[in-house]
Design a protein around this nucleic acid. Structure first.
Lengths: 194, 194
DNA sequence: CCCTGACGATAACATATGTTATCGAGTTCA
DNA sequence: TGAACTCGATAACATATGTTATCGTCAGGG
């Protein structure tokens, strides 16, 4: 659903509501591919239940870039905007319920909204948030050790550690699965003062 | 100058021109601080000549996040938009000539422009570019080795390697200065088939 | 013209991390 | 229920990388 945007700028609500009917609701098993690397992104994805990951393939072993959970929306942004082949695959991690809104309606909706003054503000706000997110990911790599990144993941976004298989977020943290295992056992030992 | 944006959407040119007079031209020596970490960003910076870097301090040794050269504009985006203390310092690397446009005029300009239909397109395009840039930086860390990142810097943005002191882009690449030196000498040896 | 500081190369050593292989616990499915 | 598969822990070894220290070159300022 477009609930992702609902109520952030109440004046825009009528627009979201108008497009609800064009969405397709899907119940998907785990490991279902929603967008394949190399294909052009043709829809906006909203997650009602479950979680998905964005990853790319690197000589056989894949590297996860981002995770999405309930009430979050996503698409391969660059592919979507530029009609270019996606650099990433999108795949469910858990059995999930998602809503898909085909690109033509997204475009149409954007055109309608472009006349609304609040829309620009919303887009600026959203793009500032996204940008900050990715800058922080990047900065974390030049500032923190993998161990620190793991600990920040634990405190800042524990749901990832709890719900996502470890080998998926190992690549996200930039380490091998073996080393992530080492980090965990080292931290576990550190806690054992009794 | 706002030449950064000029001619990208010709219909918007009159707006840029109108604000040219509010800019302050400065000739600065190397290592001049333009924005200090912890202070709120109060101006948009445009580089006419020279180059600057964006960095943050990490227990005494600083980490460079990004470089800017002639005809590029910058600000500490998050600080500027949210009126929040900047996480980064901005400093000249070479003796430089810059133009500063105070925040009040930027805000005023944005308000005027928000009524122009082309402006939204331009902002979307710019934000898509920025986002892609930072995603690529991030992805490079989980896909490439430091050696590969150095080689890509050499081929994709050779001006950085040529004009920027090595210890600045070492931290940008996520390695120590010593290791960057090792990488260079290793690559130099590789070339010596004669 | 010398002194100093900025910059970069290199060595030696310690630590972090990747790779490969093996094992075991759960889950899924026929 | 048994076979196949997914997931994660661990060991052993090789390599990558950080840290500290030393040295040489070069440019700028007195």
């Amino acid at each position: 659903m477009l609930f992702h945007f609902r109520d952030k700028f109440p004046l825009l609500n009528p627009f979201w509501d108008k497009y609800l009917e064009y969405q397709q609701r899907l119940e998907l098993p785990a490991k279902t591919v929603l967008l394949e690397e190399g294909k052009v992104s043709g829809q906006y994805i909203f997650i009602e239940k479950g979680c998905v990951r964005l990853f790319f393939n690197n000589d056989g072993n894949d590297k996860t870039v981002q995770f999405f959970f309930e009430n979050e929306g996503l698409t391969s942004f660059e592919s979507f905007v530029n009609n270019a082949p996606s650099a990433f695959t999108i795949e469910t991690i858990e059995p999930s319920v998602v809503y898909l809104l085909p690109k033509q309606y997204v475009t149409q909706l954007m055109d309608e909204l472009s006349h609304e003054p609040d829309f620009l503000k919303m887009m600026m706000q959203l793009s500032s948030l996204r940008q900050t997110h990715y800058i922080n990911e990047f900065v974390s790599f030049i500032r923190d050790t993998p161990e620190e990144r793991y600990q920040k993941l634990l405190t800042d976004r524990p749901h990832i550690v709890q719900r996502v298989p470890q080998h998926y977020f190992a690549s996200y943290l930039g380490v091998s699965t073996v080393h992530l295992s080492r980090i965990k056992s080292k931290l576990a030992k550190g806690k054992l003062h009794f």
